[in-house]
Amino acid sequence: MGISDMKSLCNGNTLGWGALILAFALVPALMTSQYQLNVACNVLIWALFATSFNMLWGVTGMLSFGQALYYGVGGYAIGLTVTYLGSQWYFAAFAAGLLFTLVLSFLLGLLVIRVGGVYYTMLTLAFGQLAWQIMFKMYDFTGGDDGLQGITLPGLLADKVYYYYFVMILVLVAVWVLKRMAYSPFGLILRGVRQNPNRVRFLGRRVRRNQLRIYVVASLFATVAGALMAGVDGSVHTDMFFWTTSGEVILMSVLGGISHFFGPFCGAVVIILIEDIVGAHTEYWSLLIGSIIMVMVIGFPRGLVGGALDVAAKVRAILQGEKHDDTTLTAGLGK
């Protein structure tokens, strides 16, 4: 029976988690400059953002092009509060941002989930762009195109290294929570919604209700990511709301592989690091990443993690002297 196997799969990740925590915990010790610490913060925050996004797309099958909206809410909740009220309100701002997202994503979700497929994607994009325009135009309040600078953090968080650990712990805990969710009964029904919504109705469950739930949850985690980003440079920018920010997490997810929980995480790490290295040398970064992802989608639809697992499976098969058999994979497709 497969149950014990499944259990060991879930618990066997202790080693992986240990390695992950250790790697990120050692960053401040190994890094030589403030700048590198910033890059590490970026990696972590984008990894959380991409992972939360993939709960929508890879898990539930809802390709949102508007998660930047909630990411921006997080950033500006911190930015506006600290700028206007002072840094002692930092944690209150964090909570206020989450509360705002809770209400907003619930209301918007009610609206956008009524339409499916590409229309859902485009509506999320439209609302994201609407928010961007509002932030852009309310110059006196939001700083418009200039954004808000000089966001100072309270107490120990003002120290870059402490802030890094604050980010690391929050991100890893958040990712852990999302992972629990992905493998829970709730996660299972979300995967069911993606694969066969009609069957889900015949399980006596509501498709849209579950879509709305994960839309709100993913948006809350995007807000956490945005709020953390505000402290990295001490500034927020309207770009946080811009549609390319939503696009970025989509690219990260695809690059890493949307059918694996850690795919988007890995994709985020790779993209931020490449962007950091290549971005300094060319202004045509979009052209490059656009071409890479295009080749990726056509040639390697399972992403980096999926590809790596395929290779590992093949190597294992060769080591065990078994012939790799593809026929079982295609046998059930002819329905």
């Binding site: 259990k7 879930c10 629990r180 829970s184 009964p185 709730f186 399980l203």
Partner: peptide, 21 residues
């Protein structure tokens, strides 16, 4: 298992892995 979880009204549970239900 998904159907059984739906029948028990457990599909809102988001913490314990479904394999442990």
């Amino acid at each position: 298992r998904l159907a059984a979880l739906a029948n028990l009204d457990h599909t809102r549970r988001f913490w314990r892995p479904s394999a442990e239900h």
